[in-house]
Design a protein around this nucleic acid. Sequence first.
DNA 1: ATTATCATGATAATCATTTTCAATTGGAGA
DNA 2: TCTCCAATTGAAAATGATTATCATGATAAT
Lengths: 143, 143
Amino acid sequence: MKRAKKKQFHDFIAARGLKSTRQRDMVLDCFLSSDSHLSTEELYMKVRAKNSSIGYATVYRTLKLFAESGIAREIHFGDGQTRYEHVAEGEHHDHLVCTRCGSVQEFENEAIEKLQQEVADQFGFLVETHKMELYGICSKCRK
Amino acid sequence: MKRAKKKQFHDFIAARGLKSTRQRDMVLDCFLSSDSHLSTEELYMKVRAKNSSIGYATVYRTLKLFAESGIAREIHFGDGQTRYEHVAEGEHHDHLVCTRCGSVQEFENEAIEKLQQEVADQFGFLVETHKMELYGICSKCRK
DNA sequence: ATTATCATGATAATCATTTTCAATTGGAGA
DNA sequence: TCTCCAATTGAAAATGATTATCATGATAAT
Ligand SMILES: [Mn+2]
Ligand SMILES: [Mn+2]
Ligand SMILES: [Zn+2]
Ligand SMILES: [Zn+2]
């Protein structure tokens, strides 16, 4: 899957007339080998560990490109920081976010998605994207 | 309903040992007589129209108190600005947000809420709050 | 190799929001 | 009503995340 994501990004880069650089590849490797839902700063720290000369701005810019290329998605959990998650082609999921330990559990529920569509239809609304997040205490933190 | 909200806020102020001020009452009146989902800046402009000497910080601080008192709820639609909506006791709703004109349509769907609870239960997750927003094109903008 | 572009890193600039602080005000008690 | 102190206010500085600027360096097509 990493291979495919890398190709997808490189194809995007090429299609846009952009250039392949050692920094972009470095950020890409760090992103693909990291957990999902990392903040820009967290990613920056990981990249920094590999190459301390990388600039903060480069990480910001590269992450935005990942989102545009479709291999990542920007998410906001209300803590004031932008996070990026891995995107699998044609897949969608929502989140359970623990307000105590910060852990994030992903889930998919076809029934809910269908009901959302019905609601939108009732209002003549054309859905492009949606977000659903349940905030609370995860099972580990409840013990 | 305005009466009740005002009382709720004044009770909150008193219970916390805070003081009732002309500025807070002014912001409260503007908030209660405005549409929901206004950004802090939009509210500030409305208050400013009544009393041009009000400070920006006061509006920020007061809106936070509204949220704490339970008469308002902070919401984020991803445009980088905090918005506040009116809260009716014991009521909950979600949103359809038009990405073209910015209009917001509220809706309630008991079936979805129930399914959300089931999902959380499956993961042993205790839900405290949740948000669900459908982004897309509203019926007016589709015509 | 040459050249036209694009990318990078350092730094300044933005933007929304928060904090600081000196001056003012509210309101409980005398 | 008067006092007094804690709470409040407005202006301005500070903050934190993100973006823009710009001189320098790298990429890749010719
Ligand atoms: Mn996710
Ligand atoms: Mn609402
Ligand atoms: Zn937890
Ligand atoms: Zn619209």
